[in-house]
Amino acid sequence: MWKKIKRLIYIIILANILFIAWGKFFNPIVTITQVGGLIEYGKLKRDYVSYDEMGNNVKKAVLAAEDQRFFDHNGFDYKAIEKALESNQKGKKLRGGSTISQQTAKNVFLWQGRSWVRKGFETVYTFIIELVWGKDVILERYLNSIEMGRGVFGVEAASKYYFKKSAQNLTKSEAAWIATILPNPKKYDPKNPSAYLNKKHNWIMRQMNNITLK
């Protein structure tokens, strides 16, 4: 029995090593979240593109909205985590402190939802992909796999879905509109923005001026 357990552990470890190595060179064939979207909405719109084919506007917009210190941290933004804890302790709206690296680990390897088990795995994967993949690969995987609408995944599919054009051709304003729906893409629609989304869009537009791609 113990030998079978050890063999299973070795297989799981080897599979993870291969999956991480694969992920450095290729986008995921499918993710758990994408399968969930397909089951829930009966569609899976995605169109993987390379880092260079995404265009700079959408990269800057998403970085401005989600993780402005992405190129400076090691996968964990301790200042953001501290602010999130303070905000949540004060009874304000639940606020997360996850970086794009953490979200990539979750989106590519894990499942959605809140649990300490998933968070633990997310931490391990985040640490590894920061070491093995590097920033450009992490950002490319994130922008290709992130949920950006009901059954819509990645910035290329989102660009075509909302604006009928490729991500590399998005204007600054259009890119900012796509970023406004994060982190609640099922709830918000840039085609029918609320007062909150309009305000967030203007804020992202201003913040994009502070983003430098490396």
Rank of each mutant, 00 (worst) to 15 (best):
N16G: 14
A179C: 00
K6G: 05
A105H: 05
F26W: 03
I138N: 05
V124I: 14
K60Y: 03
N88T: 14
K106G: 09
K92Y: 10
R7F: 11
M54F: 10
Q68R: 11
G96A: 11
N57G: 06
W177M: 12
A64S: 11
A80L: 08
E130S: 07
T171P: 05
W203S: 07
F109G: 07
K83H: 03
N198H: 10
R46N: 15
V117R: 15
P28M: 12
Y51F: 14
V62T: 01
Y78P: 02
K200Q: 10
I211W: 08
Y161R: 08
F26N: 04
T212L: 09
L18A: 13
R114Q: 12
Q89T: 07
F19R: 09
I29V: 12
G97C: 07
T180E: 03
T180D: 02
V137Y: 04
H201S: 06
L38A: 13
D72Y: 10
F71G: 07
E66G: 01
Y161K: 05
P183S: 13
K135N: 11
V117P: 07
K106T: 10
Q102S: 06
Q112D: 14
A105I: 02
R95K: 09
S98G: 11
I129S: 04
I5E: 07
R46L: 14
S50W: 04
S159Y: 03
E66F: 02
F163Y: 12
M1V: 07
K93E: 13
A84H: 00
R141N: 03
L197R: 14
E86D: 15
T171D: 04
T104I: 05
I39F: 10
S166H: 09
Y125P: 13
R46I: 08
G75T: 03
H73R: 12
Y41I: 08
K187T: 11
R95C: 01
D77M: 03
D47C: 06
L38H: 05
K200R: 15
I13L: 13
Q89F: 13
A61S: 03
E82D: 04
L197Y: 02
P185K: 13
K92L: 13
T126Q: 10
S87A: 15
A179F: 02
Y10C: 12
A80C: 02
